[in-house]
Simulated scan of single mutants.
Amino acid sequence: MELTFAGEIWFWRGPAPWHFVTVPDDESDAIETVASLITYGWGMVPVTVRIGGSEWTTSLWPKDGGYIVPIKAWVRAAEQLDVGDAVEVRLTVGA
């Protein structure tokens, strides 16, 4: 399954800081239809992500009935992104 959506980068301080983009409701619903077939536990869903010219593998994190995409530091540096920036995210689910 391939999905494309726009979102804003946000920061979670938590015990370990992370940057994320929230997957919109419609795309989260589509992911949920296949999640039970591909999750490896805790609701984590493996994906390949592309933002700009950067591509990497990671897992979607479940949050508030939907999913969030962790954005790695090297991606933010390579694409010159910061908190509040709007990005286009391309996901290949189950990668």
Score class of each variant (00 low, 15 high):
P15H: 10
W12D: 02
A86Y: 11
D26N: 14
V89H: 04
A30V: 13
V47A: 02
R50N: 01
R76P: 11
W12Y: 07
P70K: 08
M44S: 08
P62K: 10
P46L: 06
V45M: 03
G43K: 11
G52M: 14
P62Q: 10
V93L: 06
E88F: 09
W18Q: 05
R90N: 03
D25W: 13
V69K: 09
R13E: 13
G52N: 14
W18H: 05
D64V: 07
P17K: 13
E32S: 15
G43T: 13
G53I: 14
A16Y: 14
F20W: 05
W61K: 04
I9W: 01
W18A: 05
P62I: 13
E2D: 13
V45A: 03
M1C: 08
P24M: 08
G43Q: 08
V69D: 05
P17F: 07
G41L: 04
M1R: 06
M44W: 07
I68M: 12
S36F: 10
M1D: 02
E27G: 07
G84E: 10
G66T: 12
L3N: 00
Y40C: 15
W61I: 00
W18I: 06
I31H: 03
P17G: 10
W10K: 01
P70G: 09
A86H: 14
A30W: 00
I38N: 05
P15V: 15
I9H: 01
A73M: 05
T33A: 15
T22N: 00
G94T: 02
L91Y: 06
E88N: 14
F11G: 05
E27V: 09
Q80L: 14
G14W: 04
A30H: 02
A77C: 12
S28I: 15
T39A: 09
E8T: 13
L81I: 07
V21Y: 03
V87R: 07
E2R: 07
P46V: 05
P24R: 06
T4V: 10
R90D: 00
I51F: 00
G53A: 15
M44T: 08
I38W: 00
T57K: 06
V93N: 04
G52S: 15
H19Y: 04
W56T: 03
I9L: 09
R76C: 11
P70V: 11
P17E: 11
W61E: 04
R50Y: 00
W42R: 14
R76W: 02
T4Q: 13
T57A: 10
S28N: 09
W42I: 01
S28G: 12
G53V: 15
I71M: 00
D85G: 11
D82W: 09
V93Y: 01
V23N: 03
L37M: 12
V89T: 06
W61F: 13
H19Q: 00
R50S: 07
A77G: 12
V87M: 12
I9N: 01
S28E: 09
V69T: 12
V23R: 04
K72T: 01
V93S: 04
M1L: 13
T58Y: 05
T4C: 07
R50P: 03
I71G: 01
V75L: 08
